[in-house]
Amino acid sequence: MAEDAILSAKGITKEFKGFVAVDNVDLTVRRGTIHALIGPNGAGKTTCFNLLTKFLQPTRGEITYKGQDITRMAPADIARLGLVRSFQISAVFPNLTALENIRVALQRERGDSFDFWRSQTVLNSLNERAEELLGQVGLSGFADVHAAELPYGRKRALEIATTLALDPEMLLLDEPMAGMGQEDVERTSALIKGVSANRTILMVEHNLSVVSSLSDTITVLARGRVLAEGDYQAVSKDPRVIEAYIGAAHG
């Protein structure tokens, strides 16, 4: 089991001035799977997510990615290792066109872009790939539209295409369905399923039908701790999980 773990966290803890948001969490994501992180509001899902992507520094604990200790690394460097995250609020560059959004990601393969003396026409060689990626998420024909003018579902699609432009080995999706209508949820579900080939995905998600249909493994968090772990069948029957969800609904 241990050898096919791509990302693992041991005993990660995050304290905010006396309040423990994430308490001694162990998490192992196996290579090639879709792993979901669920839990009632305030369970520490987003904090946990931010710890794994290094947008927050854990108070204690250790995180390894492909056998490498990444506990003290900067978030930009994590991305360079092929571990790329998305955001809860659709993270596009609003005043850039859809094509330019994707090109910013494709530009990464040039290394650092400190060449301020060169014309941006050198980036035109990336246009073809960018168009291709737009096509993959159903955004052909929107290349010259500013991201700000795209409807919500399409913004999320653009965000996924931008992430895919980096060809990451592992994706971390923070509530990919947040704020979506049913139609968009289905389209995005299919999209995530599609991109999961040859990749590992860890996602935080509220929509349980999405979680049940997509994920191989589910980890349930409650009050900053791991409550249960397993496939949907096992987890949904666990009395502690039922109690945490119903208890939270009443509380």
Binding site: T53, F55, A74, P75, A76, D77, A79, R80, V84, R85, S86, F87, A91, V92, F93, P94, N95, L96, V104, A105, R108, D112, T162, L166
Partner: peptide, 14 residues
């Protein structure tokens, strides 16, 4: 300028 956390997540040391 448009979205710094996103630029970070794409691997730019902003």
């Amino acid at each position: 300028r448009e979205n710094e956390p996103r630029a970070v997540s794409l691997g730019y040391r902003t």
